[in-house]
Simulated scan of single mutants.
Amino acid sequence: MANYLRLDRITKSFGSFTAVSDATVDIAPGEFTTLVGPSGCGKTTLLNIVAALERPSSGAVMIDGKDVTQLSARERGIAMVFQSYALYPHLTIRQNLGFPLRVQKVAKPERERRVREVAELVEIGHLLDRKPRELSGGQRQRVAIGRAIIRPSTVCLLDEPLSNLDAALRVRVRAELKLLFGRMGTTTLFVTHDQSEAMTMSDRIVVMRDGKVQQQGKPLELYQKPANAFVASFIGSPQMNLMEARVDSEGGRALLRAGSLTLPLDDGQAARLGSRRAVTLGIRPEAITINRVPGGASLAARIELVEHLGNSAIVHYRGPAGDQIVGMELLDASIGAGWSGEAWLDPASVHLFDTETTLAL
């Protein structure tokens, strides 16, 4: 049965340095939740607190409503998969999987039954008599996961388990892990610095920065409605264009002027601005295109660089005022550096942020 995990106002300090500050995270039973953020944001420290590798300076770790803050990892029933596979090279896969049960002195018949059961679950049943050196990186990662889940656990923790894989294998293994944990229904907390992994694998994402939780929610919720400029720029690839803009008016209609761009605002956007005379304007690259947008705003621009991706292209524009904007063509058009013309965007697709607080408006 899956378990409910709550991190209740966790703070962790190391001397005068605060690694995690007043972090509260709720993870529903069976939910796959990812802690994501840049290096040094506190995500690994928070994971270590759940794993009982660190004690919080204040706050509580709750599992199914029970305060387990002072309990050891074994008493909490935590399973953990580390960045390295940490497999015993001299043991077979069967022996690696069964090692935790052997330490617990589980009877051999029961141990073998559980090894076969878990091996089939993680799809390595045909590899049990091999040794780790005979397996691919993805297969070894599945062994590490199988060894972590072979004992009943309340929560499974994953500490950047894909970072040792090459790019192509990482994409394949993350899909396999998503399917695997979906079948298991285990409450899972995953740590990564890769927002693409977070977006593709998670039921829920927690974005951290400087030890603080910036926003948490479903992947598309964070993408479509970022709480602040940091989340807006961190979630999404290529990242959102952020431009300093001034509020103006023309013919009784509110406008934003940012570099070479003049953007008309609808009544709802104008109302959100209030009395502000300056804001931060956010534009997703996929909202900018060389194709005319009905009712859209245009920007005279020159293409400086095109990164061809096959079925799409990342386009780097420079406006007459020297401002740089990144766009994306979903179909890889035959455009290249040196093209000049008008780049278009839909005013309804823009995001507005308070310049001082960086909070979304």
Rank of each mutant, 00 (worst) to 15 (best):
S249F: 11
V206S: 07
V279P: 05
R257C: 11
I288T: 03
G251Y: 04
Q224G: 09
H308R: 15
E286V: 00
S233P: 07
A254Y: 14
N311S: 11
A313D: 06
P226G: 04
A271F: 03
E250T: 09
N241S: 12
S275R: 13
L263G: 01
A270G: 10
M240C: 10
M201C: 04
V206D: 05
M208A: 04
L242Q: 09
L305C: 09
K218D: 11
Y317E: 02
K218V: 10
G217W: 00
K212S: 13
S237A: 08
A278W: 13
N311I: 07
A271H: 08
S312P: 11
N291S: 15
A297N: 05
P294I: 07
M240T: 02
A229I: 06
K212Q: 11
E304Q: 09
P320T: 14
Q216E: 12
S249V: 11
I288D: 07
T289S: 13
I283Q: 07
K212C: 11
E286I: 00
L220M: 13
R277A: 15
E304P: 02
Y317R: 04
N311Y: 07
Q239F: 10
G282K: 11
G252H: 05
L242P: 02
H308D: 13
A245F: 03
P320G: 14
S233R: 13
R204G: 08
G268Y: 08
R257H: 13
H308M: 14
L281M: 04
V231S: 02
V213E: 08
E244T: 15
R272L: 15
G310N: 11
I205F: 01
H308T: 15
V206R: 00
F234A: 01
I235S: 09
G251W: 06
N228G: 05
L265D: 00
V247F: 10
A297Y: 00
P264W: 08
P285A: 10
G252R: 04
G252S: 05
L255A: 10
M208Y: 02
V207N: 01
Q215W: 05
F234Y: 05
A271W: 09
P285C: 07
P285Q: 07
L256V: 00
Q239G: 13
R272M: 15
L220Y: 10
S233D: 07
N228R: 06
S249K: 14
I314D: 10
T280E: 15
N311A: 12
L256Y: 06
G282T: 06
M208C: 03
S202Q: 01
A229D: 00
T280S: 12
G236F: 08
L255C: 12
A270F: 05
I205K: 01
A229K: 09
G310C: 10
Q239M: 12
A297H: 05
Y223M: 03
P238Y: 12
H308Q: 15
I205S: 03
M240L: 11
E304W: 07
H308C: 14
T289W: 10
S249Y: 14
L299T: 00
Q214R: 11
I235L: 09
G211F: 00
R302M: 04
P294Y: 01
F234G: 03
Y317D: 02
G296I: 07
R277H: 15
S275T: 14
G319W: 10
Q216F: 09
P219Q: 05
T280M: 14
S275E: 15
